[in-house]
Design a protein around this nucleic acid. Sequence first.
RNA 1: GCCUCUUUAGCUCAGAUGGUCAGAGCAGCUGUUUCGUAAACAGCAGGUCGCGGGUUCGAAUCCCGUGAGAGGCUCCA
Length: 649
Amino acid sequence: MIRITLPDNSVREYPEGVTGLDIAKSLSNSLAKEVLSVTVNGEVYDLTRSINEDAEIILNKWDSEDGMHAFWHSSAHLMAEALEALYPGIKLGIGPSIDNGFYYDVDPGEGVTITDSDLPAIENKMKELAQQQNTFVRKVMPKKEALEHYTRKGDQYKVELLNDLEDGTISFYTHGNFTDLCRGPHLPHTGYIKAFKLLSVAGAYWKGDERNKQLTRIYGVSFPKQKMLDEHLAMLEEAKKRDHRKIGRDLELFTFSHVVGSGLPMWLPKGAQLRERLEEFLKKVQREHGYEQVITPHIGQKELYVTSGHYAKYGEASFRPISTPAEGEEFLLKPMNCPHHCEIYKFKPRSYKDLPVRMAEFGTVYRYEQSGELHGLTRARGFTQDDAHIFCRPDQLKEEFTKVIDIIFVIFKALDFKDFIVQISLRDPHDKEKYIGSDENWEKSEKAIIEATREKGLEASIEYGEAAFYGPKLDFMVKDALGRKWQLGTIQVDYNLPERFDLEYTGSDNQKHRPIMIHRAPFGSMERFVAVLIEHTAGKFPLWLTPEQVVILPISEKVHNYAEKVLNLLKNCDIRALIDLRNEKIGRKIRDSELKRIPYLLVVGEKEAENSTVSVRKQGEGDKGSMNLQDFVKFAKQEIEKQLEDISK
RNA sequence: GCCUCUUUAGCUCAGAUGGUCAGAGCAGCUGUUUCGUAAACAGCAGGUCGCGGGUUCGAAUCCCGUGAGAGGCUCCA
């Protein structure tokens, strides 16, 4: 007998070789129906895999990631089985579960393409196979035998995968006629997979390397119940409605024109207003933190970027240089602001007493992003960074770094971004060639970031190989409506540019010293930040920020005079108000204003005009009853002022 | 840049197998209506069907090229 410890710390005895499913059944029938995988001493097992020693176990249902991933992973196998049946000779790459479903990368063979229109047929085959309720059987095989098998089969991708694996740990899963190299774990049988949908077809380079062949990736998602699938698909539809590209058009915030060029956003009046308000807000916070605004030109000599190292790294993949007609001098559209700021630093000799120097600029930059990468405002070719560079002494580095974290917190709190991910991006220790600068400086800056992050009590993941080529970064990522991660705030430590631009300050010892640079952008870029803000708020911006705060809706022409009076009063109190004088019924005016996400709607008719009142509606909440006009003005002003106070705290 | 898909009026979309297929709703304009809390009624106007070639007696529809967009991959100073 072995001793099994359950999550509530109770201990039960079972015969050796007992399975997770056996244990679930012994606890309750309903549990046995819901459980999907079992975690045994920290390792996730199939429910049907025997447990041979004392263990602490957790039975994973759909509500746990380990349960869900077993489900999706098994779904990927089911799909692969269907694909093998429908496309003889198809070769399989990898087929994992992901955050919201699963995919399989396949090579359908020369001249065979799988398109969206083929997905229903694959789904039908999957349905048919799922109904057979084939059990997943795990088998461990020596590497040699496995290699022989796949070599014989001509499955070059699996052979490649096998070559990277340690012998002795190689497991295979078989269900029905389908066998796959796989770590597992899997569901007991395919019948668990009751509801699924194949979502899209995409190209994906083998092993994520663009030098390799591009395989066909099929994405899908599956659930234990049809109702859950329906809800998930409905949720995806809802998410599409929050897409910043759609809301941006509906609310007249920004637009693109293929005549101007792809990836070059143009801010419409309301969007420009919104953006300027955000910029003013950040400027104020930065002033309080000792920053000074600077302004630099949109172009710079090519030499500037040769010096900075950017030209060597990105020159070939950038917009081509522009040149002067007479002299043929080459200039680049600036892809970043730091070299210009370095030159401002050099404007005069600096003393250790002057540091830190904090130079801020809303700098518009242009980068040649690959055409397939452009994505609304989140990935554009022209965008404005809320950039700043801090030039400081080594002894100031950590404090300056943590102060930047504080600013980012102020911004995120002000705009109610609660779910952000913090990522420390370090260099790839196996590929140091990609980076410039000495090992010593890299180690110093990586250490500084890790320490500052720890001192701030931030839970950060460490990603190797994600650093900028000149230094490590601390990134703040936020997800969009469809769960895609975008980097917003970023802080980067840089020892390299000061060296390359030969930046100096005179120390208390009267010797020349090298300052350290911190690059930072709390919003990241105005474009990307506004995009994510739109998707988070669904266009319902906070009162202090929204371009139109109050709309006055007269019921008929008879009260236009009174309505105009209300408008002027609000405007005089610096409330952004507008009036709807259209010859429309009140229901229509309300609807249109609601769709424009205007926070307050003031309905005024003859009753209101007589008593100097307004009938107040709050967006999304309906009728709030009538209010004295003066009282409403006071109330609205107070609410706006309170918001502004709160966000600057 | 690569893979798959899409591209018809400002927006959302109809337009089997090429032949009154250039349409609808909303928005716009003009009238009528002066109205109490999420779409009044009527009329009018709007498009060389992304662009350029080709096949055909005939192309929105088929083929080739190209632009733009979507979902991914790669990339992201």
